[in-house]
Amino acid sequence: MKCLLVFACLSIALCLAAPAPEADIIELVSEVNADNYNYKFETSDGTKQEQHGSLKNLGPEEDALQVAGSYSYTGDDGQTYAITYVADENGFQPQGEHIPHL
């Protein structure tokens, strides 16, 4: 569970560092519990992110963090890019219209 808390705190810290310097945070919601967490934020430049994570029991003495979320932002070309993802024992699995499908 310590790993979950550390991961959640690092994720939130990295995400808050991500907005451009000229963007203000207009919404921020964060909840961290012993076995799960949720957060979301939106900035004045239209960047949005939300994520939730929880522990998944893989066996008698093995837990894994499973995370799901999404983010969107406006690129330098003016287009809005949106990504949804899952990260679990199978790795990071992003999906988005601009991401090539394998």
Rank of each mutant, 00 (worst) to 15 (best):
residue 44 S to C: 03
residue 63 D to E: 08
residue 44 S to N: 04
residue 36 N to V: 10
residue 39 Y to K: 00
residue 49 Q to N: 15
residue 45 D to E: 12
residue 71 Y to C: 09
residue 53 G to M: 10
residue 71 Y to R: 04
residue 71 Y to E: 04
residue 58 L to H: 08
residue 30 S to I: 15
residue 48 K to I: 15
residue 47 T to V: 10
residue 75 G to K: 09
residue 60 P to C: 07
residue 61 E to L: 00
residue 75 G to L: 00
residue 34 A to S: 13
residue 65 L to Y: 06
residue 67 V to F: 05
residue 75 G to S: 12
residue 79 Q to P: 12
residue 37 Y to C: 06
residue 59 G to Q: 04
residue 60 P to R: 12
residue 48 K to T: 15
residue 57 N to I: 09
residue 39 Y to I: 01
residue 79 Q to E: 10
residue 42 E to F: 06
residue 32 V to C: 06
residue 35 D to V: 07
residue 57 N to R: 13
residue 63 D to L: 07
residue 40 K to H: 13
residue 71 Y to Q: 04
residue 74 T to I: 05
residue 66 Q to P: 04
residue 31 E to K: 15
residue 30 S to F: 05
residue 74 T to F: 07
residue 77 D to Q: 02
residue 58 L to V: 02
residue 77 D to P: 02
residue 66 Q to C: 04
residue 57 N to F: 08
residue 68 A to E: 11
residue 78 G to A: 06
residue 77 D to T: 04
residue 36 N to R: 10
residue 59 G to A: 02
residue 63 D to Y: 11
residue 44 S to D: 03
residue 34 A to T: 10
residue 44 S to R: 04
residue 64 A to Y: 01
residue 32 V to M: 05
residue 79 Q to L: 00
residue 76 D to I: 09
residue 52 H to T: 15
residue 36 N to H: 12
residue 64 A to T: 12
residue 57 N to D: 11
residue 67 V to W: 05
residue 46 G to S: 00
residue 56 K to T: 06
residue 46 G to N: 01
residue 63 D to F: 10
residue 43 T to S: 14
residue 35 D to I: 07
residue 31 E to Y: 13
residue 70 S to H: 06
residue 75 G to R: 05
residue 77 D to M: 01
residue 71 Y to L: 04
residue 55 L to F: 04
residue 47 T to A: 10
residue 55 L to V: 07
residue 73 Y to G: 04
residue 63 D to S: 08
residue 40 K to G: 13
residue 68 A to K: 05
residue 66 Q to K: 07
residue 42 E to M: 07
residue 75 G to D: 07
residue 55 L to S: 03
residue 55 L to C: 11
residue 37 Y to R: 03
residue 59 G to E: 03
residue 33 N to K: 12
residue 63 D to I: 09
residue 66 Q to I: 00
residue 31 E to L: 13
